[in-house]
């Protein structure tokens, strides 16, 4: 018997399907067909605006003496991009309020983004800082506003935010959250306090000012750099800068531990240096302080 012939004969028999095998193959084919023909998961459109979009706007207002929460619900139709929707305005009639009005302007819901303009009408001598809003869809997904423009128009603060372009689902409702609006009194001469330090003094030492006490841990000069380390056991908040070097102190500040801050200034060596310090609200949350980069512990 020839081995090749034996194998070919065996193969011929094996490859002749029985009825049951044919049925099995038919089932197999059907299963493959079902899997292959199953429509692929299609990517959702970036943003869908054919349905009325409900925008819930939540703003947290932070004032020097406390904070408030304001929520407003606004419904926009799909034509919102063409027509002027009813814009929510928050009026503050309270004489104590530092804000006259917050207006949300140009809330535009149109592919590929959501655009919102926040207009802050503040009392005189106050300024505001606004944390960038974000959008949340009904599934809890968060979308950021990637473009921010800040202008002062007719002494009002106007912030325009444009959202990111990609939205994962066609949301029927979205919330605009403005985490906080921080209102702060502008620097006026009486708010700013002044003190002077000399290099030949002994440190640490305490500097007492009106409603303010500073602990100067060290005050040294080395390699063209003046270094000041200050702290406060009561963690009050303020801003401090070297005169006349007014604008650049932020770049040179560094926190040391939880209560000390180090300031470094590249200046020429001199006998005495003048500093300005200004207190701000003690009630501001840590997040605001970090974002605004004014975290500086000083005594009341």
């Amino acid at each position: 018997m020839d081995i090749d012939k034996l194998l070919r004969d065996s193969a011929r028999v094996v490859n002749t399907p029985s009825l049951r095998q044919r049925a099995n193959i038919d089932q197999l084919e059907e299963r493959i067909h079902t899997r292959v023909m199953k429509p692929a998961k299609r990517r959702q459109p970036l943003f869908y605006v054919a349905v009325p979009l409900c925008l819930l706007i939540a703003i947290t207002l932070l004032f020097p003496q406390g904070k408030g929460l304001v929520e407003q619900t606004m419904k926009l139709s799909s034509q919102a991009s063409n027509k002027e929707p009813a814009l929510p305005s928050l009026h503050f009639t309270d004489k104590e309020s530092l804000l006259n009005k917050i207006t949300l302007e140009n809330v535009t819901v149109a592919p590929p983004y959501v655009k919102v303009t926040v207009d802050l009408d503040l009392k005189e001598h106050y300024w505001a800082s606004l944390e960038e809003p974000y959008l949340v869809d009904e599934m809890g997904r968060k979308y950021l506003f990637v473009n921010k423009e800040e202008v002062v128009r007719d002494e009002k603060y106007v912030y325009t935010f444009i959202s990111q372009k990609k939205f994962e689902a066609p949301p029927e409702a979205m919330s605009i959250h403005i985490p906080y609006v921080f209102v702060k009194k502008k620097m006026v001469p009486q708010d700013v306090q002044q003190f002077a330090l000399t290099l030949n003094e002994k440190y640490p030492k305490t500097v007492s000012l009106d409603h303010l006490q500073l602990m100067i841990h060290s005050f040294t000069y080395s390699k063209d750099t003046l270094t000041l380390v200050v702290s406060s056991p009561q963690m009050r908040i303020g801003s401090l800068w070297l005169q006349p070097d007014f604008a650049t102190y932020d770049d040179r500040r560094e926190r040391i531990g939880t209560d000390k801050v180090s300031y470094r200034y590249v200046v020429s060596k001199q006998d005495s240096y003048s500093f300005h310090v200004s207190p701000v609200s003690p009630t501001l949350p840590e997040k605001v302080l970090n974002d605004l980069q004014i975290a500086f512990p000083i005594n009341d």
Binding site: L7, D9, V14, Q21
Partner: peptide, 17 residues
């Protein structure tokens, strides 16, 4: 069980393969 093999040899060949 499925077998249409008529010859025991062919069955044996497959078994050895």
């Amino acid at each position: 069980d499925d077998s249409e093999m008529s010859a025991p040899e062919q069955e044996e060949v497959l078994r050895v393969v």
